[in-house]
């Protein structure tokens, strides 16, 4: 997974960088995990888009006659305690997981970029902003999210907000570190010398040079957001229980673990595979976009 830097012959060093296409081809062979992860993510996105066609049945249709029924021809993965089809619920759960995960990574990136740019660029804001980020980071994440959801009410938007706040500090620290290294470079000084305004300097000159690590971090936050939503739902403080979230299905499965163990199989696998794919994709992107960042920031 990591690239060892060996001393190269001089001829190798002056050879121009291989083309992007060549690098991708080389990469597919060297990082099968990243490729597999990206393909799985694509597949999961397709499942979310075509959930209605794939599921075939209504995920919320109650059917007391077939409650807690094991896998059968009509219900390939069995039914839950209300007789709802578990396959259909899991397929529809993809939308919630991906939607919330994407929202969380967007919120965390937006907040993190703003805080990171301010802290990295304005020396006077650096210490107070970063101590604030430290305080948020030190606080157990799920507890903070529970607190925010409890205060603002259970809705999808509030879950996204709560988890977004939890992951802002990571992005902010990353952006800040990139800004600190870019800030002193000659082209920034040149831009400032010709009178470019601060906000334009930050947005047009400093931010573009930090996109690679930000995208990589965004993928990991996406994965954490999916996990976080499932955890909140499992604890009963996620999106309202009418949504077939994977975490909600699993929390409903907990009391029936003796009678209906099949309830926990499919949503659990879906959750693990989704998070795993996103993590693999993140690892792969990191190696592709930024070979220097070998460890997770």
């Amino acid at each position: 997974m990591t690239v060892v830097e060996r001393p190269r012959a001089l001829a190798d060093q002056i050879r121009p960088e291989p083309s992007f296409g060549k690098r991708v081809g080389h990469y597919v062979r060297r990082h099968p995990g990243g490729v597999l992860g990206s393909m799985l993510v694509l597949l999961i996105v397709l499942v979310a888009i075509f959930a209605n066609q794939i599921a075939g049945q209504d995920p919320t249709a109650l059917n007391p006659a077939e409650r807690l029924a094991g896998p059968s021809a009509a219900h390939r993965f069995g039914t839950d305690n209300f007789g709802r089809d578990l396959f259909s619920r899991t397929v529809h759960g993809t939308r919630i997981s991906l939607g919330v995960g994407f929202g969380v990574s967007l919120a965390a990136l937006l907040g993190g970029i703003i805080f990171g740019l301010l802290a990295g660029y304005y020396r006077r804001l650096d210490a107070p902003l970063m101590r604030l980020m430290d305080a948020v980071m030190a606080f157990p994440g799920i507890i903070l999210a529970i607190g925010i959801v409890a205060a603002t009410g259970q809705s999808i938007a509030n879950v996204i907000l709560a988890l977004g706040v939890v992951y802002i500090p990571r992005v902010a620290r990353l952006v800040r570190s990139v800004v600190l290294s870019v800030r002193e470079q000659a082209f920034i000084e040149a831009a400032r010398a010709i009178g470019v305004r601060d906000w334009r300097l930050l947005g047009r000159h400093i931010l573009p040079s930090s996109w690679s690590p930000i995208i990589v971090q965004g993928t990991f936050v996406f994965a954490e957001g999916v996990l976080g939503e499932a955890t909140l739902s499992f604890l009963g403080v996620g999106p309202p229980p009418i949504y077939p979230s994977w975490g909600t299905i699993l929390s409903e499965a907990r009391p029936f673990i003796r009678e209906a163990p099949w309830m926990m199989i499919l949503p659990g696998i879906a959750l693990t595979v989704t998070v795993l794919s996103l993590n693999l994709m993140g690892d792969g992107l990191r190696d592709l976009l930024d070979p220097r960042l070998r460890r997770r920031a």
Partner: peptide, 11 residues
Amino acid sequence: ISMPTFWLGLN
């Protein structure tokens, strides 16, 4: 890393 804690617990 990817498996949710609570699902591992349920298993």
